[in-house]
Structures are given as structure tokens and as C-alpha cells.
Nucleic acid binder design. Structure first.
Lengths: 242, 242
DNA sequence: TAGTGGTCTAGACCACATT
DNA sequence: ATGTGGTCTAGACCACTAC
């Protein structure tokens, strides 16, 4: 779960309670102390506590019930909150057999008609193209095609692409990813899929199209993640918004 | 987008601004009035306005930028917020050629080993099984298998299943769905898929497993939605949580 | 009746962007 | 310096649950 270290009071209280839940201090089915008690314990106001608890609810840790209290949910039911904006690196480091990444292509190019459309490029605008395959247990099962606006990401090296591009963007460039739109669809394999993936006879792939936006609402990245059918999985935790 | 009519101030302000955005009162790229101005205009406190604006941001209508203001996003980019908990009925009514639903099976049964596990049933507990196929343009492309705990949904008729079960649950039974976990995966077709779907030669389906919880955090429904590969689509809008 | 979470207020100070 | 959104406070009243 992506979570910045901010010294906000409500954020640190949130992280504190998450820790308590993970440690088993609070077990599934238990009730948290009331908001009033928590406010007293953390020496803060109730509204601040409520901010922390709302975060816990959003992320599937608790369920708040009016008149009763906040009940700790069974997070193991929601194993791996892969949902949302989690990057490949964060995802893979939780796995026992970590995958290997191979950088097949890293090219600076002008946007073609397709890219101009999906990245809202101005004519002639330059982009980085990164094509990587993800190897799990000796098989290439995911093909990631990333496109970044060069006006925002000026430099990119094979070394960076081998590790986490997002780590580079966030830690080194200071870019802040804010929201993303994902589209899931199944498509026939392309020549590129045949070239870079071990398809094992499958002739379709699950394609995840990802449009990523920065804090100032500018679109800066388009990614196509192409998964061999039998290796695709996605988990989503959705809460009814209030 | 599911949105209850509550007379909460922040909720009605939210709905008001949504209407303004949809009417074109505010256009993509425009800035909303500042929180201070909105508070004055709606004769309320700034915190209440902030609640409304946070809802707008969560649902992809605006992007809030510190020091600058709240910018209206281009919702057409995020066409159909299918994300989250939207039901089939809500989804289908937005389509030009509405699909037909056929109820293949409606049976009251005891939970087998599989259901006991996914629905956390006590031994011998009864469930409703509903098997429906969704017909788009003359082809059966989705097979929905729903399981409801009988202790929560006592009665169920073919008539209800033909329309929206959720409408019945929420409007008639007063059940409130609170959150859900979805799993996406691709699987080989079963005999049932061959029986109820027009598979057009495809031998795999996209399976969406859906675990639905009520307001008091009790699991009450398990659904398996099986989509013919070429007809599967899912859109997700994810915002980095704060 | 007492305790819980949900909403709302009127202020305060802060971090950031613009001028 | 001014204006913006982000955090935080100390209260208030309400709706719901439990006893």
C-alpha cells in the first residue's frame, strides 16, 4: 500500500493503528476504542481521529457502524490490496519468487497518431518508449509498454528501467502521481507479444491500459500492460462512497 | 454512479456542483470558486464545502491543487465510471442496445464445500442460487452466477431476478451494500459456460469473483460473472488516497 | 438513558502558488 | 502580500444502538 511519510497527525495515527492491526493488537471482529477515547489517548480532537478512521475504512481495515463502533475487518480476506495505483515494483516485492525485468527497448521517439491521441500530445512532441518483459519462474508472461512525455521526463536510462521507473520519478524527479484510469480488455496477440512473451499456445492477452495523471491533473504517462491469459490477476477493493 | 438522496448539506452541495459540471456551467479546465467563496454562497462552513469537494475529487470530477484551486476535469476522458460497486442494471441502462437477461436457474440449496468457504456459511446453511445469462445483440456473452445467504434474503422470485436483484434488495428489503472485493482472472470454460453462453469458439472466459458485504460488515453475497473474452471490459478510476 | 458514530460550525494556523 | 487549499481544534447537535 502506497503511503507517504507525512507528519500529519491524522496520518501518523492512521499508520499507528494499521500497525496495531497488523501486530494483532486488534483482531478481526474486535472493536476499536471509541472515537472519543482515541481522541483522548492521542491527545487530539475527535475530527482528527475521524480522519484517521476514515482512512482505515477506505483501505479495508475497519468498518464503521453508527451507534456501535469501528469493527476490525479480516484483512486476510482482502489479501494483497493490489487495487488502485500500486506499481509493479511494490507488487512484486511481496512475492516469494520475485520476477526479473528485461528491458527490450528504450527509445526516444515522436508521437504517432495513436500516441498523440492517448497522451494528448501536441504535433511532433517527443516521448520515451520503454518496452519491458516480466519474467516469472523462467517465463516471460507480462509485456509492459510505457510511454512518457519527454517534456516531463527528460532523461531515462536502461538502468532506471531495470529497476523501478516510478521510484525514479517520485524520489529523484519529485513527480507526484495523483490519479489514474485503467481499462481492462482481452485482445488478440500482436507480433510483439509473440516476440517478447512465452505464450504457451495462448493467442490472446489481457491488456491493461493505464492513463496516469500528475498532481496538477496533467496526463504524463500511458502504459499498456499485456498479460498472458493464465497469469493475469487483479484484485479490487471498492467501498461505497460517502 | 450510485448516490443516495440524503439531505446532508455536504451531499446536496456535492450533487449541486455535479449538476453544474454536467450542465457545462463549469467546463473542463475551469476553476471552481474558492472554498471560501463556495462557503459563503452556500451559507455554510468551509469544512462542509471541503467535504463536498473531496467527494467531487474522489469521483473524478475535479482535481484540487494546493495554492491554486479546484480544477474541473474532463469526465469524458473517464467515460463510464464503471468502477467499484455499480450493478449490472445501472451499467446496462447507459447502453444504446440494452441487453436481455434470461434466468436459467433459481434454486434454494444447501451450501456445498465451495460455497461454505467463499460465503463463510455455517454447516447446512441455505443459500439462493441464481444463474442468469446476459444477451447482447442476440448473443449470450455473460453468465452471472449469484449466491445469496437465505438468512438475509428470504424470498426471491424469477420475476425479481429478471429485473434488478439489487433494486429489490435495496428498495424492498432495505439492505445497504457497503463494500465489495473483486477478483479478476481468466479460466477455461466449464460445461455450464458451453451450455449457457454463445462462445464463438473461445475456450476461456474472464471470471469476475465478487464478494459483497453489508453495512454491518457481514458477507451476504458471492457472485461469479463469466464473460466471453472478446466482450469483457472493465474501467477503473483510482485516486491516490490521502 | 448512555454511548456510539455522523454532521456541522467558526475559527485558527500552515504550506504553497501567484503577483 | 494575498489568495489558495490542508490541517486542526473544541465545541455542538443529531441519528442510531444498546441496555
Amino acid at each position: 500500500m502506497v503511503m507517504k511519510m507525512k507528519e500529519n497527525k491524522y496520518m501518523s495515527i492512521y499508520q499507528n493503528i494499521v500497525k496495531d492491526v497488523k501486530r494483532g493488537e486488534y483482531k478481526p471482529g474486535d472493536k476499536l476504542p471509541s472515537e472519543h477515547e482515541l481522541a483522548e489517548h492521542y491527545e487530539t480532537s475527535r475530527e482528527t481521529i475521524r480522519k484517521s478512521l476514515n482512512l482505515l475504512a477506505q483501505n479495508g481495515y475497519i468498518q464503521k457502524i453508527r451507534g456501535k463502533g469501528s469493527i476490525v475487518l479480516d484483512m486476510t480476506q482482502f489479501n494483497l490490496p493490489i487495487s488502485g495505483l500500486v506499481s509493479f515494483k511494490e507488487l512484486s516485492k511481496e512475492m516469494s519468487n520475485p520476477p526479473k525485468t528485461k528491458v527490450n527497448e528504450l527509445t526516444e521517439m515522436e508521437g504517432n497518431a495513436f500516441l498523440e491521441k492517448v497522451l494528448e500530445l501536441s504535433p511532433g512532441e517527443k516521448v520515451w518508449q520503454v518496452v519491458r518483459s516480466r519474467n516469472f519462474d523462467g517465463e516471460n508472461v507480462i509485456l509492459d509498454k510505457d510511454y512518457f512525455k519527454k517534456s516531463i521526463v527528460e532523461q531515462l536510462t536502461v538502468e532506471i528501467c531495470k529497476n523501478s521507473i516510478y521510484e525514479y520519478l517520485e524520489k529523484d524527479l519529485g513527480l507526484i502521481i495523483s490519479f489514474a484510469k485503467k481499462e481492462f480488455v482481452v485482445e488478440k496477440c500482436t507480433e510483439e507479444d509473440y516476440a517478447y512473451l512465452d505464450l504457451k499456445g495462448y493467442d490472446h492477452v489481457v491488456v491493461v491500459r493505464n492513463y496516469v495523471y500528475l498532481e496538477d491533473a496533467t496526463l504524463f504517462q500511458y502504459t499498456e500492460s499485456r498479460h498472458r491469459l493464465d497469469k493475469f490477476q487483479f484484485v479490487d477493493f471498492a467501498r461505497r462512497e460517502k
